[in-house]
Design a protein around this nucleic acid. Sequence first.
DNA 1: ATTATCTATAGATCTATAGATAATGC
DNA 2: ATTATCTATAGATCTATAGATAATGC
Lengths: 226, 226
Amino acid sequence: MSVRKSRWTADLGHVRPGQQTRSQRTQAALLDAAEELFADRGVDATTIADIAERAGSSVGSFYHHFRDKSAVQYALFDRFVAEAERTTLDAIAPERWEGASIADILQSYVQFAVISDREQPAVKRAGLEVARTDTELGARFDKLSAMLDQGLRDLLIARRSEIGHADPELAVTYVLHMLAAVLRARLQYDSTHTRYGPRSDDDFVEETTRAVCRYLDVPPPTGPPE
Amino acid sequence: MSVRKSRWTADLGHVRPGQQTRSQRTQAALLDAAEELFADRGVDATTIADIAERAGSSVGSFYHHFRDKSAVQYALFDRFVAEAERTTLDAIAPERWEGASIADILQSYVQFAVISDREQPAVKRAGLEVARTDTELGARFDKLSAMLDQGLRDLLIARRSEIGHADPELAVTYVLHMLAAVLRARLQYDSTHTRYGPRSDDDFVEETTRAVCRYLDVPPPTGPPE
DNA sequence: ATTATCTATAGATCTATAGATAATGC
DNA sequence: ATTATCTATAGATCTATAGATAATGC
């Protein structure tokens, strides 16, 4: 007995698999348009007509590709999570960090996060915006965060003897919380209002690294960021 | 020549000044209901009917008091900003901190922020939620942030000789950014998903204080938080 | 022949008002 | 007499579909 397949690939995403080249182009255009609009105005303030118009498509075509607005959210999230998982798994691979000190690891991480935010700000902001509203996507986002969190945690804990803090586990927990917070704040503030953080990215990376190193009481990174 | 007054007090708030005791009760109930709903589901997902129902009132009555949904946002923001300005001005008064070290000031600030978040989480979260969507309210929120920022900055800069950092101004800027970020993150994470920050408020206050003190290279607070 | 796209629009949802009824306090 | 409240509903907005037309590739 075979389960009857609906016209939609998976039941969660509700995205129609395109069978023509033209179809895939349109679908990609719709996704890109939605991503930008979600990041700019938020999901609720974006109508299907907005998305279709910006993509140079039509409402009817939108519904040919996606079951409804939430289907685009899921699809966007898929793109986002897939990419993020790949880079995260790569980044936290222990082999990658043999011989590296805590300071080296943290500096590289902050630097990487800042650079990727600069390159594709809409992607991550749309991700955050979308995860904020939907419970299920929020859970998925949490899972991704947990993976990154655990990976970094392992890297740091493996070097616990370097740490000058009475409770190294707590210290590592705090560092991870702090990094997530300041990186997120910088991404969001930047997009909306002018704020009062360090103006240049270089200053931000340097001071963030300094802050966590001093907190953990580990020596600063050997060299400046490459 | 006198300007013709509309039935609405100010043109921005669009709130009708109640003239009966009953009226003021209803208006307060509507505000409270809106505050909770905004904090929970967000502004867009909240309908006028939702607000009226939770307040034990009616749609018609809502429109008797407020011109539209944005009027409630402005009114809520007024309550929020008025309260926040008072406590902020009080908190950053230089007289208050004579003889206090940098560590004392920062510890008290973090502690105060955490406690007030615990007491009225809906207030601040609704404030953040509302400021996020509306440009004008965002600007007003920024002004409040700037006041707090400047006040704390002055307090810290006045003690710059304590600071062990090559660029004390930059260091203070970073500390303020960091505090805003970690406090906000804790407030928001707490409300949504379980996260990976320090579990207890006491740990959070202690580690945050430790982090900024070590970063600035100033001695830790003299005593534990009262 | 099949798949993709478009225009037009029905249906659902929410906002905001009109008009009738009830409560207040001078 | 004035102010506040309620119910019912018109009007606006957005979602999602139907049905007709155009493009694709076997």
